[in-house]
Design a protein around this nucleic acid. Structure first.
Lengths: 141, 141
DNA sequence: TATTGTTATACTCTATAACTATA
DNA sequence: TATAGTTATAGAGTATAACAATA
């Protein structure tokens, strides 16, 4: 018999992710980023998206929410919306040089954050964590 | 040598907690709750708080944010703010019967959610998860 | 003066519904 | 009619700064 230990797992997870999420956001903000900006940048770098909506869902948000972020990012000179020649309803979203540069900086930030986050945690523990996290997500899907 | 495996841990954690957090909120909402409401209720049941600010910090928010939640909860008849006789600046926040009843219902929701969340995950894995989660939080503090 | 809590205000992230322009 | 994306609007959760009442 294993007795229940401490707060419910959901609460523990919420608390941890709140703390980690805040620290992550703060780290990104220091370099001029944010979590959604980084997600968009990371999904843009390397992949071409057939539509903004698919990009949005890859990021985990709805279309209008992506529009808002892209508006801000375009105003900041990070991305460009180019009309698709074949289907003039669609846009191809492209990284500008500034967008690529920010992406590169944020990658460094993410790597450093990751290193800090993982301090004192063994590779085996990390692998187990990844595995269990994946199963938790599947359990609520 | 253990090669890097998959997305950065921070991203994985963000994604998992987003998914789990949404499902958790949805489960609480079905019974008329929300994450902050549940946190306030859970912290109120059992403990007496010397000040609202300490309650706020126990919940993980600032004073004015708690004021907002308490306003809503008081309007919904879940809590009562009673002036402290000894220090008339302070309020004692008390659960009403409706607040206690909601707390009881939400406890059930939380237990059920927890059960769903933990499906197929062994006690040893859960214990390891709790441990690692705690260390992750400490690493960013 | 210091503290408790509220008010005023604003920001970020999110969503749904209605609209425009293409197809 | 259907689809890609935007605009309009709204709501939840959060914070900081200024304030009132009390100590």
């Amino acid at each position: 018999m294993t007795p229940p230990s401490g707060p419910p797992l959901g609460l523990l997870l919420a608390r941890t992710s709140k703390a980690v999420g805040r620290a992550f956001n703060a780290a990104l903000a220091e370099s001029g980023g944010s979590l959604p900006i980084w997600l968009v940048l990371a999904n843009l770098r390397g992949s071409a998206w057939p539509s903004q909506l698919e990009l949005a869902h890859a990021v985990g948000i709805e279309g209008p929410t992506l529009t808002r972020h892209l508006d801000g990012m375009e105003a900041a000179g990070l991305v460009r919306r180019v009309r698709d020649a074949a289907d003039r309803r669609a846009f191809n979203v492209e990284l500008t040089d500034a967008g690529s540069a920010l992406h590169d900086r944020l990658v460094e930030v993410v790597i450093a954050f990751n290193r800090r986050l993982q301090t004192g945690i063994s590779p085996a523990e990390l692998a187990a964590l990844r595995d269990v996290l994946g199963r938790l997500e599947a359990n609520v899907r």
